[in-house]
């Protein structure tokens, strides 16, 4: 600041080396920076998902159409989900696991959502179809490959999920996520991102 130091700094009671011109410089630069930031904001924010993209962030799925022992894959806003109709054997398998041995402990019930009447529906399992390792879509009954634990097998680096979508083996750190969804009727679910 001393660059602009005036020859008579004390004449008008200012600190040595600081002048009104310094003040004007700082004030002007601040206003300019504020202006730049204000203009930059819309140019950054335009990168965010657009309104029509956001509007496509939920979908209804008729779970009664999913064949027993198989699954369907739903894309919502480009994000894939599994909706699986589990057999009784698969449900038993999911329930018989000793939770404390799991990498990401969770009971099978905690991975289900209640029907309109408040009861759980163990035959329908809804999970994210994104492997928690690096995001591949695991293979499942639809592809004829379910891995060692009967659930899903990720071909990318070999993660294995069980019939509750819990991680059992391989590099993935977490269970397949359970998306936000509700039963609107006993057969219709609504999944949202």
């Amino acid at each position: 600041m001393a660059e602009h130091g005036s020859s008579s700094p004390t004449a008008d009671g200012e600190h040595a080396g600081e002048t009104r011109r310094d003040f004007i410089h700082i004030a002007a630069a601040t206003v300019a920076a504020g202006g730049v930031a204000a203009v930059a904001w819309p140019f950054v924010q335009q990168l965010a998902p657009a309104a029509d993209t956001r509007a496509l962030s939920a979908a209804e799925v008729d779970v009664s159409k999913v064949p027993l022992g198989s699954e369907i894959r739903v894309l919502i806003g480009g994000v894939p989900f599994f909706v699986r109709h589990r057999t009784d054997a698969e449900i038993q398998e999911a329930r018989n696991v000793n939770i404390s041995t799991l990498r990401d402990p969770a009971t099978d019930d905690s991975r289900l959502r209640p029907l309109p009447d408040g009861k759980l529906n163990p035959s329908i399992l809804v999970t994210s179809a994104v492997c928690t390792h690096l995001g591949c879509v695991p293979l499942g009954p639809d592809n004829g490959k379910v891995g060692e634990f009967g659930g899903w097998y990720c071909p990318c680096h070999g993660s294995q999920y069980d019939t509750s979508g819990r991680i059992r083996k391989g590099p993935a750190p977490k269970n397949l996520a359970i998306p936000k969804y509700v039963y609107e009727t006993p057969t219709m679910i609504k999944i949202s991102l």
């Binding site: 950054v44 990168l47 965010a48 998902p49 993209t53 962030s57 919502i76 806003g77 480009g78 994000v79």
Partner: peptide, 17 residues
């Protein structure tokens, strides 16, 4: 990630930008 993709996953907005 969201600002890069312009959506929840790689899609049209991503391809365009």
């Amino acid at each position: 990630k969201t600002y890069l993709l312009g959506g929840a996953a790689v899609g049209d907005p991503t391809l365009n930008r």
